[in-house]
């Protein structure tokens, strides 16, 4: 299956300072691979940086949020019939050297979604205390429900097969913070998940969506979303809404 269509999906919001390096690293580490930048209504030069690098750019006219930007990429990928999507953040947090690991995992193992975990191996990633607590709570909830160890439920460094991408083009995708609830949704729909070890760096330029006042909404949303996801009728892999 070496002739599969593979897309690297990068949601980007005001990432002009880091995006160029991320794109360069992807080309260096993953070779000739299709790249899509979803510019989520940036007010800086993000769009220009991506276009200058010669990659496909889809720009939202205004900011819709991280999950919605990813979903735009899923819709595009579904339309263009890509077999595998590797999604990576534009802030330089994710080490692009692992793109090949993701592709290898999806190609050779019985897995639909590969999740990059910064905690499977000690890579020296320093986690703030509050985040560590949140990770522990939501990681344990995800592990309990999915029946497999989930160490990094907030990781955005993931690879998906086309059936998962199609699943996520529908309205059941949680568009604001797709984290633990998304993993549970995938499990309930019958998709197979696997964490793989990756190296991540602290995002120094980007404001994390798990920080500040947003963390209160994040915790509320995640608990509510998990409960209602569990109470809904289990979604089917080929759910047609």
């Amino acid at each position: 299956m070496e002739n599969e269509k593979i897309l690297v999906l990068i949601p980007a919001y005001n990432e002009e300072l880091s995006l160029g390096k991320v794109l360069g690293d992807i080309k260096k580490n993953a070779g000739d691979i299709d790249i899509l930048v979803v510019n989520d209504g940036s007010i800086d030069q993000t769009e220009e940086v991506a276009k200058k690098a010669g990659v496909k750019v889809i720009s939202h006219p205004f900011n819709l949020g991280y999950g919605a930007a990813l979903q735009t990429g899923y819709i595009y990928s579904h339309q263009k019939n890509y077999d595998i999507i590797v999604q990576i953040d534009a802030d330089g947090q994710h080490d692009t050297i692992h793109i090949k690991d993701f592709i290898h995992t999806l190609r050779n193992e019985d897995v639909d979604v590969a999740i990059g975990s910064r905690y499977l191996k000690n890579n020296g990633y320093k986690t703030p205390v509050m985040r560590k607590i949140g990770m522990m709570i939501f990681g344990n909830i995800a592990s309990f429900i999915t029946g497999q160890k989930i160490t990094d439920p907030t990781s955005g460094f993931q690879a998906l097969k086309k059936n998962v991408v199609h699943f996520f083009t529908q309205d059941l995708y949680p568009p604001d913070y797709p984290d633990t609830d998304m993993l549970i949704l995938l499990h309930l729909a019958g998709f197979r998940l696997k964490e793989i070890p990756v190296k991540m760096y602290a995002a120094h330029m980007k404001k994390s969506m798990h920080r500040g006042h947003k963390i209160i909404y994040y915790i509320f949303k995640m608990f509510l979303s998990i409960v209602v996801t569990l109470m809904r009728k289990n979604p089917s892999k080929d759910n047609k809404e």
């Binding site: 496909k56 750019v57 889809i58 720009s59 939202h60 006219p61 819709l64 919605a68 819709i75 568009p175």
Partner: peptide, 20 residues
């Protein structure tokens, strides 16, 4: 909100394809 998000996503893809 859901409708606006859907429309925006599809419009953004169409505009990008058109520019290409």
């Amino acid at each position: 909100t859901k409708q606006v998000r859907r429309l925006t996503q599809k419009l953004s893809i169409l505009v990008s394809d058109l520019e290409e």
